[in-house]
Design a protein around this nucleic acid. Structure first.
Lengths: 344, 344
DNA sequence: CTGAAAGCGCTAACAA
DNA sequence: TTGTTAGCGCTTTCAG
């Protein structure tokens, strides 16, 4: 009975009648091995189904070929697609990804980062809450490879891969304005969050250009959850006069708005127009289909990983990390016009 | 400049003026350490912000406190919620989870398992395609801790955590039948997949009880994707006479059905009733809201991890793995009646 | 082209 | 209560 589990390089060396150094050489495809020797070793490896122990290798190489992905919630439809992008391209370089959800809680974020550090991941893709500069700072001090995802905590020199949140919201708002909607209410995302803040800024900037002021009256707070969109809309419905359009900071909240409208017999878009942000799959499946801004989610993931790999590689070459840090990569979003903003 | 990175147990030992064994003892909360000594060591650890290297620890303990999660696609709305359940409860025991998507491709599944094995994860939660008995068999030979998720590959002794797919589909079909729908078409899930097969069986079983035969006429093939649901529905629409109700093997396909209906000006549920399966978040957000069978997704994840941990623990105690393997955990689903099957 | 030996950071007998 | 020492499985000088 062969327990593949227990096989070590030693066993292979013995069976193949060579030294462990030689086995190591063939495993790692090093040159300077006689082709006959190589063949012999390979044969034994094959026959015994030997798999090198990556933990041992990690210890000596000081490299684990794992990266950590720390996000608010894998359950939020934005992230799985990003995660898939990361994973697919990570696999190409034989990297694995360890993930952790934090619900935007600073304490959980810190704990997650600590754990990953102890596991000696080679790098981290991070989507942290704004209050968590500390963690980033600590990482910087160690020159630990990091790329920020979807968010940019100001003051950190780590590159970010994300969309231009502010510009995107600005364009969304302008689209609404240009279509004749005069009174627009924004349901904001969590304001302790970078995308929440920036999208709100974009909304405000657009309104300002059109000569609006007293802007806070046009904003109701949400936190990116559907529930919060629903509640915000109920609040709006209870206020004196109804807006002509709602711009929700993400699609999930827009769906909460849908729900509130349905319960109150308001027809979208006839009675009120609704616009979301992100273009999650759902947005095209609801009725009416939801006008939104499309984020290149999968792409974000791919790019985030390649940037990270770049950093890891340059660190291996002992280059000063600050000097080689890649630029931010800021994507534009794309306006997707659907039925929820059809005006008649 | 302190690079937290480079600190080892040796440094702590030196600073605290004790042996590395003692440091190891306090790190691991072992008894038999003088409380003064302990305090001193702890202080140094604190001050230098030392974090033990889990790779080194993993090598000697032969345990990494990581598990692998191998699923078809993190991007399929069923899995993130399961993943979150796994993660949350794994964290409680200081476990991390490495995930990998395989698109149900046997080759990718094998590669993923291999990689995880080399990374020396302590156990695996697996959702494999039915053609991949081999992998399971190989794992069994090594007595490697595994729990199967959402699927049960016959012939494997590893426990499965899932719902009773067949019974669930059976009850769904009966619900439709009991509500007066006489002609029902089933859009099946991928038939090379356990849930796809079983749900189809449940549908067939119900029809049989009601005296139907020539059952294949009541089934159109899908593969769980929305696209496939859409195509199946188009096919149905082109056939001679329309069924009164559609039972899609999952919600995503039901949404494809919605789309096809909309394009062909068929009203759900007035012209045709539609039922799905899984109760993904979406199902309550579409219009009309979708009648479906609810899976306890988060719970599935929680239980899957606890079972796995059980196996890992008993393996540590050198118990014969086959003897201690926990039972399967089969959940029931819950019928969620919504608007898409209202008949009038 | 090949092998002996040192060492990655840690834990665990065993001694003291 | 503490320290010495021998590995865990692998890579990498350095010699041959």
């Amino acid at each position: 009975m062969v327990y593949g589990d227990k096989l070590t390089i030693k066993d292979i060396a013995k069976k193949a009648d060579v030294s462990i150094t030689t086995v190591s050489r063939v495993i790692n495809d090093k040159p300077d091995v006689n082709s006959e020797t190589r063949a012999k070793v390979l044969e034994v490896i094959e026959k015994l189904d030997y798999k090198p122990n990556n933990v041992a290798r990690g210890l000596v190489l000081n490299q684990t070929f794992s990266i950590g992905l720390i996000i608010p919630d894998i359950n939020n439809p934005f992230f799985p697609e990003v995660a898939r992008g990361i994973e697919d391209i990570a696999n190409e370089s034989d990297y694995s990804v360890i993930f952790s959800s934090t619900d935007n809680k600073v304490e959980r974020e810190k704990k997650a980062v600590d754990l990953m550090l102890q596991k000696k991941v080679d790098g981290l893709i991070l989507s942290l809450s704004m209050q968590n500069k500390d963690t980033l700072r600590a990482l910087e001090k160690q020159e630990f490879p990091v790329v920020q995802l979807d968010r940019n905590i100001p003051g950190s020199y780590y590159p970010t891969v994300m969309i231009n949140h502010k510009d995107s919201a600005y364009r969304a708002t302008n689209y609404l304005l240009n279509n004749g909607f005069k009174k627009i209410t924004h349901i904001s995302g969590a304001v302790d969050t970078f995308p929440g803040q920036e999208r709100k800024k974009g909304f405000v900037a657009a309104l300002k250009e059109w000569g609006y002021d007293d802007l806070e009256n046009f904003i109701v707070k949400g936190n990116f959850s559907r529930e919060s969109g629903y509640k915000a809309m109920i609040k709006i419905l209870n206020s004196s006069d109804l807006p002509e359009a709602i711009f929700a900071a993400n699609d999930m909240m827009a769906l909460g708005v849908y729900q509130a409208c349905k319960e109150n017999n308001l027809k979208v878009p006839n009675d009120i127009a609704v616009m979301g942000h992100d273009n999650i799959e759902l947005s095209n499946l609801v009725d009416p289909s939801l006008t939104t801004m499309k984020q290149p989610k999968y792409k974000l993931g791919e790019i985030a990983f390649s940037k990270l790999l770049e950093i890891i590689k340059s660190k291996e070459n002992k280059e000063e990390i600050r000097e080689v840090l890649p630029e931010n990569k800021i994507f534009s979003t794309q306006l997707i016009i659907r039925d929820s903003t059809k005006n008649n």
